[in-house]
Design a protein around this nucleic acid. Structure first.
Lengths: 227, 227
DNA sequence: AATTTATTTCGACGTTCATCGAAATATATC
DNA sequence: GATATATTTCGATGAACGTCGAAATAAATT
């Protein structure tokens, strides 16, 4: 593949957003990547086909889910080199301009991101309801009771062909939050229980009063988190 | 500049051809780069403006000549990283498919390239009519008599605002040949003297019988060069 | 078997990009 | 001053690209 072909493939924000979402070796599904790129699934399919044909991404099917990952270290390091080596017009840290409500808590496709997503993930690891092993989340062999407390039946979730708990890198916090079936189940159950509500712009999330109580009392979040 | 912007800028063969012609730190003029890219000067101007705006190239004027060079080591190393790190569809060495007559001797804009261009440059360095210093050609302080022998008046050429003897990297030989005012003068004088003639396709060059005599007798090329 | 979810295919539409002929401008040379 | 060379500007043209609605396909779930 020539330099020009490579340039052409990465020369669009949608494809770059997908690549960046996958940096760090995680696998994400087509719909999740469509969300990250801010396009419809049809457009995402078109872009993903190009990335796979260019051998930048690797695709594997798992039931009806199509998972994509970066195709090797050399691709990742090339993207990193471009990101770090090219002259910038504007060196400002884009994170300074994130709306506070998006930074605090928001949906990332169908799971939680932002400070809330990161903090929940961190606490689940701390109480050993999740294991962070070699930069990836895993469920422990013995089911932690917190899932029942929240109303999540892990044995049912385990039956899914969807990845259970891939690590999603938070673009505002630059720390990981849990995605996949477990991440989605946590988010769905919190909506169902009235602990969080989606805001009108469908991205940011408001934590309700009962949600605040639940997060402090049951999950052990610090009260200072809500200041 | 974002990854996508960078990708878009290098995502066309014409701009990549210009960047590649400039790898190694040489400076080439707009018309020379148009030639390398295989486009008209108007098209080249458009592309060069983009490369300069993206801060990949640096432009400086010298009289009516506009010279371009790679804008720093980080740009060069990023391009090299892309060239070496990306997955290739077809690993064949493209040089295998070069027509023999193009490989042997051809014009590169207005100076000689191919085996002939490289060999003439090598011999000029050997007899100290050119100095290869820090990967660049230079004229020696004392004018070498070979130029008068060929019919070239260096004192007149020195008056030109054009670069005298930049190093042009031969894409078939991967060795340098001399470009600029000196390179052009050598080629022009050899045409004028009937030592070489342009072929009908305007790229390859045929060495005439008298040219062969001249190159062996006056410049010291080995007879085996013409086998 | 019916319904739902994930993804792809199809086709239309609008935008972006790269090209060059003609003409103009800037910088020499004669 | 006239002419030549290097380069740019202008405008038109055609190709390439990215989008999504509608519909279809594949793999679940009910």
């Amino acid at each position: 593949m020539s330099i020009a072909d490579f340039g052409r493939v990465i020369g669009h924000e949608s494809r770059v957003a997908m690549l960046q979402a996958l940096m760090g070796g995680v696998a994400l599904s087509a719909s999740e990547l469509a969300w990250h790129a801010g396009v419809t699934n049809q457009t995402a399919t078109s872009h993903l086909n190009e990335l796979v044909n260019a051998k930048l991404l690797y695709r594997r099917k798992c039931g009806r889910f199509h998972y994509y990952e970066i195709n090797g270290d050399s691709v990742a390091s090339t993207i990193e080199k471009i990101a770090s080596g090219i002259p910038v017009k504007d060196g400002r840290d884009f994170r300074r301009n994130v709306k506070p409500e998006l930074k605090k808590a928001r949906f990332c496709y169908d799971h939680l991101a932002g400070e809330l997503g990161v903090e929940i993930s961190r606490i689940l690891v701390q109480i050993e309801a999740l294991v962070l092993y070699q930069d990836s989340f895993h469920l422990p062999e013995t089911e932690h009771p917190i899932y029942r407390t929240v109303g999540i039946d892990l044995s049912e979730i385990r039956k899914s062909r969807r990845l259970l708990c891939p690590r999603c890198v938070d673009w505002t916090e630059r720390l990981p939050h849990v995605a996949g079936a477990v991440g989605a189940a946590i988010a769905a159950k919190m909506v169902e229980s009235g602990f969080i509500v989606r805001s009108r712009n469908e991205r940011s999330v408001k934590i309700t009063r009962s949600g605040r109580f639940f997060l402090i009392d049951k999950l052990g979040l610090s009260a200072s988190f809500f200041v």
